[in-house]
């Protein structure tokens, strides 16, 4: 039996579809597993195993993680740390990006490459000195210590990203404004910044998840439990609820709520951020 090209194509597509479906189902198994765990009791899991019908569904694990496990406090801390870092880094980086994109001056390329290198270096090399620095500035064990390192370290990637975006904005606009006697800062603030909105949105979304997900800096720069962001808080939770995996997993799920929010509502920007930054 001869198949027409169209039929062949159809069969091929169906095969690819099925393969992908199976792949995705297996791929998401950890997510299902986590959800399943979080609604069950430890005794149930130990006695019946994963693949049996749970004896009963419970929401208690979430409650325990939220209040006893202090996820409420940790999540709040994450926001307190992430939001100022994000605003600060976007503000400063857009200035850097603008200067590098729109002015020809000696050292432009060198500075650009420096920021690119800065986004790639292993932050381990900064751990000890930044710990010492924060201590000497009196911002060790405060939100500020974390905010400052995020704000400055993320400038590497953000400057790179924004510079490459702004360079694509045509010069005619600024020339016209300059003739009208606008100051350089006004050109930046009233022309380039508004025009960079799409880039800022994409970058902001991406940076939000990155700063939110940081773990090592919180480990090094904070002492008090009450200041910890949710990543470090989860590590504490792991120590405190060492045998109750269902509480731990419920905590992990709670900890991801903000990023899930980003995923659902700002997905478009997130992907744009990722691919714009490295697609060059």
């Amino acid at each position: 039996m001869e198949l027409t090209i169209k039929q062949k194509k159809k069969i091929r597509r169906a095969a690819i579809f099925t393969a992908l479906l199976l792949f995705v189902l297996v791929w998401l198994l950890p997510v299902f597993g986590a959800l399943l765990t979080s609604f069950r009791t430890m005794d149930d899991l130990m006695n019946n195993g994963f693949w049996r019908m749970p004896e009963k569904i419970t929401f208690k694990n979430f409650g325990t993680a939220w209040s006893e496990g202090r996820l409420n406090r940790y999540l709040l801390n994450s926001f307190i740390i992430t939001i100022p870092s994000l605003i600060g880094t976007l503000a400063l980086s857009s200035m850097v990006g603008f200067a590098l994109a729109k002015y020809k001056f000696k050292g432009n390329m060198a500075l650009y490459l420096m920021f690119v290198a800065g986004m790639l270096i292993p932050f381990q090399i900064l751990l000890i000195p930044v710990f010492k620095l924060s201590n000497e500035l009196g911002i060790y064990n405060s939100y500020w210590g974390l905010i400052m390192i995020h704000l400055v370290f993320q400038m590497g990637f953000c400057s790179f990203f924004l510079r490459n975006y702004m360079i694509t904005i045509p010069d005619e606009l600024s020339e016209a404004a300059r003739i009208d006697g606008a100051s350089e800062f006004r050109i930046f603030y009233q022309i380039y910044l508004p025009l960079s909105k799409p880039a800022l949105a994409a970058l902001g979304t991406l940076e939000f998840t990155w700063i939110f997900n940081d773990y090592i800096w919180a480990l090094v720069l904070l002492r008090d439990d009450k200041l910890k962001p949710v990543t470090a808080g989860l590590a504490t939770l792991k120590g405190n609820f060492i045998t109750s995996w269902s509480v731990l997993v419920a905590g992990a799920i709670l900890a991801t709520l903000p990023t899930i929010f980003v995923f659902i509502f700002l997905q478009k920007y997130f992907i744009k951020g990722l691919t714009m930054g490295s697609g060059k």
């Binding site: 201590n135 009196g138 090094v220 002492r223 439990d225 504490t236 120590g239």
Partner: peptide, 19 residues
Amino acid sequence: ITAHEDFKKAIRVWLSSDN
């Protein structure tokens, strides 16, 4: 209150900080 294992790790940072 910090979990035992984390406490052992963190204590030196606390002690060597000014705070």
